[in-house]
Design a protein around this nucleic acid. Structure first.
Lengths: 155, 155
DNA sequence: GCTTGAACCTCTAGTTACTTGAGGAGGTAC
DNA sequence: GTACCTCCTCAAGTAACTAGAGGTTCAAGC
């Protein structure tokens, strides 16, 4: 099963060919062997390595983190506990992002809800809800609080 | 309170000065008035507009979406319902991202947990968990399934 | 052997939303 | 007057690719 060309490798790993060349360029993949005509040839080891890289990228690891993991995978002097630590670190970042995104979701949902409750159209410049966004650190109302009157021209 | 310089505007809105210049360059902020010496001067209207922009960006709207919202805010012929629709659309995207991120969080947590359960260090290249990542579409075990034996050299 | 068309090559530029840095000018306090 | 801060413009850098131009190689069919 050796001797894949770039297109076949791409298909096998769910990557685009230009992305593979890009990974080579930045040194994430070794420089591929070439056929007489200059076309890249890949082996099963490359399939494995690229799959690893793609999986890590799907996991949201940055290129630099993936680089560490790849090196770690191939260096018999390094402990795999290091990978766990990287993952742990990444997990913390993902959880922080998750919390942020949840807050964001609540805010936007509240925004939409308050639009539904208070506005029935009308000119943008007079919409009290849009206007709110240009004030500093105004909390978007946490749904159905009836805190504000509708836009003068709405409803 | 008029006549802010760029640094003051930056402070008031929590933006960096280069970012303000960038917004001007891409036409998100109007071209600022200048002092005799060429320094930009801003008014309260600019504070308001930039605050609006920053709030929208914090909400995860893209520059182009913000551009729409800003135009909408200032065009008396457009309905604010359009803003609601943009927000609604954005909400859907945020929810999709949220779902993805949750799945990711579970996967990484499972990875860390299985490292903790199966590995106590050992060379990276022989770690079965790292090795898993180079195989196609292998589910990271959903915690404590005991599916696999520990790395040969670990534990 | 020739043709055709897909797949490949390199190189450059574009994407998003800024950030960083160089090198110089304006403004203000002492 | 001089020190120092803030400002100016312009160019390049960042992440992680994607897209396009223009040319070459390869495999299949005749």
């Amino acid at each position: 099963m050796d001797g894949l060309k770039i297109g076949a490798l791409a298909k096998r790993t769910g990557t685009n060919a230009p992305t593979i060349r890009y990974y080579e360029e930045i040194g994430l993949l070794r420089s591929a062997d070439r056929q007489a005509g200059g076309q890249r040839v890949y082996s099963d080891a490359d399939v494995k390595r690229l799959t690893f890289i793609r999986r890590c990228r799907e996991f949201g690891f940055s290129i630099e983190q993936v680089r560490s993991l790849v090196e770690l995978m191939q260096d018999p002097t390094q402990s795999c506990v290091h990978a766990r630590d990287l993952a742990q670190e990444h997990l913390i970042a993902v959880r922080a992002k998750l919390a942020e995104l949840k807050a964001l979701e609540r805010s936007i949902a509240a925004f939409v809800a308050s639009c539904d409750a208070s506005c029935a159209g009308g000119p943008g410049p007079e919409c009290v809800i849009l206007d709110d966004l240009s004030k500093r650190r105004v909390e978007v109302p946490s749904t159905s609080k009836g805190r504000r009157s509708p836009c003068g021209t709405c409803s």
